[in-house]
Design a protein around this nucleic acid. Structure first.
Lengths: 216, 216
DNA sequence: CAACAAAGCGACCGATCGGTCGCTTTGTTG
DNA sequence: CAACAAAGCGACCGATCGGTCGCTTTGTTG
């Protein structure tokens, strides 16, 4: 069942991808070099070609891995919160935590990748854009659910709010470096809290928000 | 007074920098190559070294040029609006116009550059960060002025609002490509208008806002 | 016109990058 | 143990990049 050769291969494959996501969060998806990647695993450069046809093939796998990581570290924990407005807040809160914990040295893989590739049409850009659109759809649907549950006002525009949550969320990556202090996270949290409370039927649902996505 | 040799040099220098800002908005500040830059002006690669010691020296000049352009195309026109809350709105509006007019093929030089360099310490990053901090300070001071004039509520936090304006403003660069429609600009304008109106003493100052930064 | 200086050129160099190719090592299957 | 296959290696290649160096062209100054 478990082929020792394939298992070994799968281990290096996973390890290389994890490193690649981390490196790409700093230097970008084009910035990572196969030599650098191989060296950091004591593997020969040519050995990498046993796993990926060429660099583009590797890049596509890296995007998939980054997406998986985002799901595990941000989305899944947020699903522990009660549905509705608190889940929306949990998504933002988990995101802040992901950045604050410095899971990736560059802060955010997608923040770097999207600016690198948004003017470079091709399979890699498509893959990155797919991931981002999927995330935006998740935000939008969570807003819709909160409206349907009667926790957010009927006038709430899901696309509008999803845009704002993404904008305020990603801005923290730059600003935390720019301001050289933790205050960027504070601003980002405050902005979303203000926004959600203004649109909430019962703002007290967001009182003393827990920071770990747990039900209150 | 006007040395024909220096004048000629200054002309190429300016032309090359303009091209470089445009190219860097797409490929990043490291992405531009001296060969590509020289070729696009019918100049030899080595000729560029008559103007800049090395690539880093060129990059610093490019940042300065981008900053100058931002001042001319965004800040200066916004100063035509009446001081206070309308000037704050004009800054956002002019920014949207700058992006919509596609002055730069990549949308925004700084949006690309900051993500490229935020983890690469050195003179280039410092120069980029200086420019961004200067812009944030401008937003902050404009907020303070509006508060002092009694146009924004006293509780308004200038740093907080500056953060939100920057976040909502820059997000449009990515989103306009992501959504493949003009709606991103609409979301961005709506978000800032909502925010400013909520904090305004007299929200009607922002009715039917002019899009060219002119006094109403 | 002579002396000078700035802009710009062309040939060349070392370093690095993505990628190829034939081979070896590691492990599986009968 | 023999046949096979997957993972991985080492030497090598063409292309490109930033940068150097000696030279030419263009224009200025006395």
């Amino acid at each position: 069942m478990t082929d020792g050769r394939k298992a070994r291969g799968e281990r290096t494959r996973a390890a290389v991808l994890d490193t690649a996501v981390a490196l790409a969060s700093v230097d970008g998806l084009d910035g990572i070099t196969l030599g650098q990647l191989a060296a950091s695993h004591g593997v020969s450069k040519s050995g990498l070609f046993a796993h990926w046809r060429d660099k583009e093939d590797l890049q596509l796998a890296v995007v998939d891995r980054a997406r998986e990581q985002w799901w595990n570290e941000v989305v899944r924990p947020a699903f522990a919160a009660p549905r509705g407005i608190r889940q929306l807040w949990a998504l933002h809160e988990q995101r802040m935590g992901f950045y604050e914990r410095r899971v990736l040295p560059g802060g955010c893989f997608f923040a770097t990748a999207v600016h690198e590739f948004d003017d470079h049409p091709g399979p890699v850009r498509d893959r990155i854009f797919d991931a981002l659109r999927h995330w935006l759809r998740l935000l939008r649907n969570t807003v819709k659910e909160a409206v349907a549950m009667g926790e957010l006002r009927d006038e709430t525009d899901p696309k509008q709010l999803a845009f704002e949550m993404q904008a305020i969320g990603v801005a923290v990556v730059t600003h935390s470096r720019l301001l050289a202090s933790a205050s960027a996270y504070q601003y980002s949290r405050q902005a979303i809290l203000d926004r959600l409370r203004a649109l909430a039927i019962d703002p007290s649902l967001l009182d003393e928000p827990k920071r770990n996505g747990e039900p209150t």
